[in-house]
Nucleic acid binder design. Structure first.
Lengths: 143, 143
DNA sequence: ACCTCCATGTCAGGTTCCTTACATCGCAAT
DNA sequence: ATTGCGATGTAAGGAACCTGACATGGAGGT
C-alpha cells in the first residue's frame, strides 16, 4: 500500500504549524486581554478603516455572523466603534478603531511578530521567502 | 517604518492555507456526515487502537474536555466505542473504532487525500518535500 | 502503611464559529 | 416605476473548543 504516515503529510503539517502558531500567539495575547480572532479583526480594521462588518468578515475569513460575536466584544471594551446608523445613501455601517484600539493593536502586533520570528528563527531569509512562495502556491490550488 | 504588508507574513500565510485546507476538506466531509475534528479523532483511533481519551486528546492537539464533545458524537453514531469500565489494574478506559467507524474512515481518508493532492497540485515532488521540511522546522521553533 | 504527585475522567460555564433563516436596503435591468 | 437581485444586518441554535475546578485511581517516595 502507498499509505504513508499521517505525520508526514503536508496537510497535517500545515495544520499543526498553524495551530502551534495560534496557540503560542494566543497564550501571550491573553496577557493583554485579546484573542487571536480579536487581533485579526483589529488588524483588518487598521488596513480598512471604516469598512462595514461584512468586509471585515471577508478579510478575516469568517462569516458575518461570527464576526458579530467578535466585534461585540471589541466594541464592548471600547476598542472599536460601529456607526449607529448608515451614512446617507448607504446601508453599511462603517466600523472604526478607537484610540484605545489602535494602541492595544500596537502591543498585540509586537507580540505576534515576536512569535512569528520565533517560528522562523531556524530559517534563513532565503528559506523564509521560499516557504512563503510555496504556501502561496498551495493556497492557489484550493480555489 | 519596516511594517510589511500583513498578507505577506508567514504566520498569515500558514493560517490561511490551513484554513483553506480545512474548509475544503470539511465541505466534502460533510457529505458523509463528518467534521474535520471527527476525522482527526478517527485517524488517531486507527493509529492508536485502545488508547484512552486523554491520549487521543494529545494526538489531536485538543484538551480532554474538547475531545469528550467530539467523542460523544462519534460513539452516539456507533463509529467508536468506549470501554464501560477500566481494565483490571488500570484507570483509563480504552477507546476503539467500530467496523462502521473503520469503513467511514476509509471514505474520509480518500476525501482528505484528494483535497491534499489538489492543494499540492502546483508543486513538484521536490518542492513538496522542501515545503514539508520547512514546516517541520517552523514547528520545531515553537516549543 | 501512608502520603504526595500525576494522570484520568468529569462537570460547569463561556467563547468562537458555524449553518440556516429572515428582513431590509440599494442598484440595475426591464 | 417596479421588480429582482445582491449585499448587508440580524437572530436562533448547535458544534467545537477553551479555562477552571473537582473527584478518583495508580505509582513511587518516605
Amino acid at each position: 500500500m502507498c499509505q504513508e504516515d499521517v505525520r508526514d503529510r503536508i496537510g497535517y503539517l500545515v495544520k499543526q504549524v498553524a495551530q502551534a502558531f495560534r496557540s503560542a500567539s494566543e497564550e501571550r495575547l491573553r496577557g493583554i486581554g485579546l484573542s487571536m480572532a480579536q487581533y485579526a479583526v483589529l488588524t483588518a480594521l487598521r488596513d480598512a478603516p471604516g469598512a462595514p462588518a461584512a468586509e471585515l468578515a471577508r478579510r478575516t475569513f469568517v462569516t458575518r455572523q461570527s464576526l458579530r460575536d467578535v466585534l461585540s466584544g471589541l466594541t464592548g471594551r471600547g476598542l472599536a466603534s460601529v456607526a449607529p446608523e448608515p451614512p446617507a445613501g448607504g446601508r453599511a455601517q462603517p466600523v472604526n478603531l478607537t484610540d484605545a484600539g489602535r494602541s492595544l493593536l500596537a502591543e498585540a502586533e509586537a507580540i505576534v511578530l515576536e512569535t512569528e520570528a520565533r517560528m522562523t528563527a531556524g530559517l534563513s531569509g532565503d528559506e523564509a521567502e521560499q516557504l512563503a512562495g510555496l504556501l502561496r502556491r498551495c493556497r492557489a490550488g484550493l480555489d
